[in-house]
Amino acid sequence: MREINDRAVLQVKEKALAIRRHIVTMLSAAGSGHTGGSLSASDIVACLYFWEMNLDPANPDWENRDRFVLSKGHAAPVLYAALAERGFFPTEQLMTLRKLGSPLQGHPDMRKLAGVEASTGSLGQGISWAVGMALAGKIDKKPHRVYVMVGDGELEEGMVWEASMAAAHYKLDNLLLFVDHNGLQIDGKISEVLSPEPISDKFRAFGWHVIEVDGHHIPDIMEALNQARRVKGQPVVIVAATTKGKGCSFMEDRVEWHGTAPNREEMDKALAELV
């Protein structure tokens, strides 16, 4: 268990803010990319990289490291920002996002950037990948944990449920899934496009331990992570209620910010709010 105290919470909050500022800045420089879903995931990713996970940025291939798989790979900016802030590479490199020759591909590429655990972006595949990693941990009797994040729209992929069945069948209590439940996908509200609801009930029926949390309330996320560690014999999913575009008022809960990058003016406006 990790200790939840004011200092830890404050540190994660500061990192979440830094991550959001990086996201807006790098996406503006790139001129394309996925802003909304990167911002909705920022608080959870900050908790993972600055409180929860055992990592060694100087030795990214350290055998006993915890792994994080961003199955919703289009939110790559949140991962890149966290890795840079954590010291895997210089923050200046964030500005090369989506540029020719950059290790910061439009979707994460493990072969190009240290710290990226899985090449993701084709939805549904990262969760299977994480199940495989957790199985490897069980085979080798390793203590490390595997974290994976899917989007709520991603739950429409059939493969997610194949993976969910496997995770429960193989009792993968070293696997923790976050659902970034921001309620929006490219074509609109998930409830209108193709509803994956009721999400928590589905996971319960698939044999998972379900925790529901406010995905922007850092002490609650921390508490959920500690609770997850106490669960034995089954995988845990944290269904996190989030807001797409969180932190930038003009982006919040607006579907048009799914796959749009801010222009210079919008970036300035966003950065003025992200303080």
Binding site: Q125, S128, W129, G132, L135, G137, E162, A163, A166
Partner: peptide
Amino acid sequence: FINAGIAEQNMMGMSAGLAAAGK
């Protein structure tokens, strides 16, 4: 040995994760 059940897509995805973990 891991039986993926009748779920080939997940079998390939899990294979990737296992290989990424050194298998």
